[in-house]
Write a protein that binds this DNA or RNA. Sequence first.
DNA 1: ACGAGCGCCTGTCGGC
DNA 2: TGCCGACAGGCGCTCG
Length: 275
Amino acid sequence: MPELPEVESIAKCLRNGSATNPSLIGMCINSATLHWQRSLVTPSSDDFISRIQGQEIDSIYRRGKFLAFQLSRDTLIFHLRMSGDLVIQQGEEIPTRHVRLTLELEKGYTLCFLDPRKFGRVWLVSQPENIFAALGPEPLDENLTAEKFYASLKAVKRQLKPLLMDQSFLAGLGNIYTDEALHRAAIHPLMISNQLTQKQAAALLDSIREVLIEGIQRNGASIDWVYRGGDFQNHFRVYHRVGEPCYRCGTPIERIRVGQRSTHFCPNCQNLRNK
DNA sequence: ACGAGCGCCTGTCGGC
DNA sequence: TGCCGACAGGCGCTCG
């Protein structure tokens, strides 16, 4: 799915508008149509449709990989998981495939939740904090200091790759940005968290922030058939680069399986030993 | 506490 | 051409 930079890019686009779509701030939701029941977690579809009707979009924000719409009375929350996307259409141009939820807005605009794989989820709640309760800190939050990050790494004994992707440890990293951050910090994905030095922990936090900021500046990454307009995919240093030379040392990039996920790294720069 | 495996889904791609 | 397996930006669950 979209990771933090992709969700941030989508949130910005819906909030500020773009060349092809208006800002949704201030728009009223006239009606809602649910096309795939299981996309909706809560409330029931009948309650969802009646409750959301007539509410206005006050603000749009991101928390971890969640995308939230603060409405007049409730909060509408999306998790795009692997293949979800939110697009605005006008008039009769409603896509026919992969549409799981549509919100009919003012002036003929429709917000479409597209999700080929149907893994995405939607909530309409009065207390959004409950949905976000299990999330760890935001990686770009200044309050997350290198000292705090080091302490949290020392507090557990886990492989870095799955740990960094654990949303209760840190909110927002997924498979791509985790691999990219570990490579930039020259740390092996299977290194055990409590073995990092303070210096390595600081470098890792810096690298995480670097890749996320670059991803946001490039409007995220668009890979496979899911094109969202970003171009960070053209700047990956390890992801999808198996066998190609490491930009730092020329060694071919390798791929291993960690927790059922493809993990890309440079076996020379990111050595488990001597670190 | 932690990691591995699996289920949830549809689509694409490469090999034969 | 058609079939088949591998693979895909995530996460919750169970089982050792």
